[in-house]
Design a protein around this nucleic acid. Sequence first.
DNA 1: GAGTGGTCTAGACCACCGC
DNA 2: CGGTGGTCTAGACCACTCT
Lengths: 253, 253
Amino acid sequence: MGTTHLESVPEPKYWHLKTVLSEALDSEFTVGEILPNERELAARFGVARATLRQALEQLELEGRLQRRRGVGTTVAPPRVGVAVGTGQQAWPGGGDDAWRAVDSTDAVPPSTVATALEIPCEQSVHIVRRSRVSHGQPVAAELLYVPHASVPDLSAIDTANQAARARAVLRELQRLPLDTQDRAVELGSARADDAKELDRLPGAPVLVVTTRFFAAGRTAALSVATYRADTCRLTFGASGGVEIHHGPERQAS
Amino acid sequence: MGTTHLESVPEPKYWHLKTVLSEALDSEFTVGEILPNERELAARFGVARATLRQALEQLELEGRLQRRRGVGTTVAPPRVGVAVGTGQQAWPGGGDDAWRAVDSTDAVPPSTVATALEIPCEQSVHIVRRSRVSHGQPVAAELLYVPHASVPDLSAIDTANQAARARAVLRELQRLPLDTQDRAVELGSARADDAKELDRLPGAPVLVVTTRFFAAGRTAALSVATYRADTCRLTFGASGGVEIHHGPERQAS
DNA sequence: GAGTGGTCTAGACCACCGC
DNA sequence: CGGTGGTCTAGACCACTCT
């Protein structure tokens, strides 16, 4: 009959495209190089632009590409390892801290945060915004929620200078004896304000790191940090982390 | 003059749709409930199906929805906390381990893995496959790469019984004195085989946890575990983790 | 077989960047 | 201004699951 159903499970075009592009990136392109534009690439591969974009989207998700509106699509450098937990427990804002305090406000947190802090809903807390830069690129934005009870001696603050206010909250926090902390990592999408800070579009994939700080038998602070998922590899433990992934794949038989 | 440019920055339709749907999920739906199908939803909101799908995709990415071909779209339960690091260091396969050994082969690993293991390219290693189930759902698939040098006493193995072979490798590994380990978490997309194991489509977003085990001054083993990003929240540290996120958002002013 | 989500097309217009 | 990626449309067909 001739029709030896070669592909009883034909893989989707965009999936095949992704593989082809991925191999081309390994062999024919260098980091930072700009690719042909989407319309041309689509024509070259004989697919609709939407299909090509589906492949590009995945490659961007995997940190292989970087796309910027009005500019073009470039080959991304390998993900930067970003140290998240050094092993020992520490308050935010300590000596070797990679963060920069931006400002601080006093507001009612989302109800989910209030629950985690074990405080009543509608009760306001200090909200410290911080940002983190690595290799010249913004990689993370953080909201640190600190109940008033955790920093009782914070008084007569200069409300005008927001950055100073933020630093004052962090300084007061250091004086508490830190008991333990725990951490969770999950996938999320960037809210509008985070996206702006991370130089991405709203909805961009981010890794959300939630850290709870315990002191004096209470939850003394809660940090919600959103990292750019396309450019970051979060590392835990002593050393710098592992350099793995995407590369000429040789499948285990 | 009536045109007081209400929306000088008109947010995209799919973004607005996502917000509307998200609020509807909070108030009008219960976990497990199935939503109207995509064609109907698109008609109801007066948008093209592709646009609706863009909103659904994001909600699925955030763990709010679960979509299954041939079945429908359902409201997802909150993400399950999955303990990844207990704080203390331990070999895989130890007593309280949540993993199930599947099988083991002997093959040449990808070059990136060979580099991390500090072994020559083309040198074969033990590759142990394991899978992890939580609340009755598969949540992770792992490939554990073990150089032959790390398990020298592994001899006369029953090559027929793959699962037994896997357990034998893990057992031998326990006898090594573990020095340290380090860990990295990054976003990836599921390879075809992982996707099958995780009951997802290829390309589904996953959290890739790479763990390096050091013993006797060498990298004694390397684990690459892929977790379903839509259903999992990876927790580190002692307790079960934090329950945060997506919920009626009250923005800090 | 009926109904679902997944893929794909060929177009259009918009928002943004750099010249 | 021209060129880029981002959004959106209205259709079509396919792969899958359930009954």
